[in-house]
């Protein structure tokens, strides 16, 4: 396995939103674990950076939080996607796809020299 990349700013928010869309309401630890697992352990998430990001999303109104009880009866703060968050996810996902598509075309070998 090569170097594990740090999560870069901006994409973390997208990953959080996507995670919440896929799994429904979830606590911070669960989100962090899920992101690591999904990346196939290619990403190293410093769990500490997650909480300011969550707070920022909440301030922007994309997610909401409430206290609940976890599977093993522990009190935890659960985050869930809001309507605005869903829209934002669609928008950001589209933009991201566009960006990667453009980059992919640039990087595709030999097309323009042919």
């Amino acid at each position: 396995m090569g170097e594990r990349a740090d999560v870069w700013q901006g994409t973390l928010a997208l990953m959080v939103l996507k995670t919440l869309q896929a799994l429904g309401p979830l606590h911070g630890y669960g989100i962090a674990r899920r992101i690591e697992q999904t990346s196939g352990d290619l990403l190293a998430v410093n769990y500490g950076t997650l909480y300011p990001a969550l707070l920022k999303l909440e301030q922007e109104g994309y997610i909401a939080s409430e206290w609940g009880t976890s599977d093993n009866n522990r009190k935890a703060k659960y985050y869930k996607l809001t309507r605005a968050g869903r829209k934002q996810l669609d928008k950001e996902a589209r933009e991201w796809e566009q960006t990667t598509e453009i980059l992919a075309r640039f990087l595709a070998p030999g097309k323009e020299s042919a």
Partner: peptide, 17 residues
């Protein structure tokens, strides 16, 4: 207080795992 509680629950879950 809430922040401390959230951190604490995170830690506990992680330790459990």
């Amino acid at each position: 207080r809430e922040l401390a509680a959230e951190m604490e629950s995170h830690l506990q879950m992680h330790i459990q795992d």
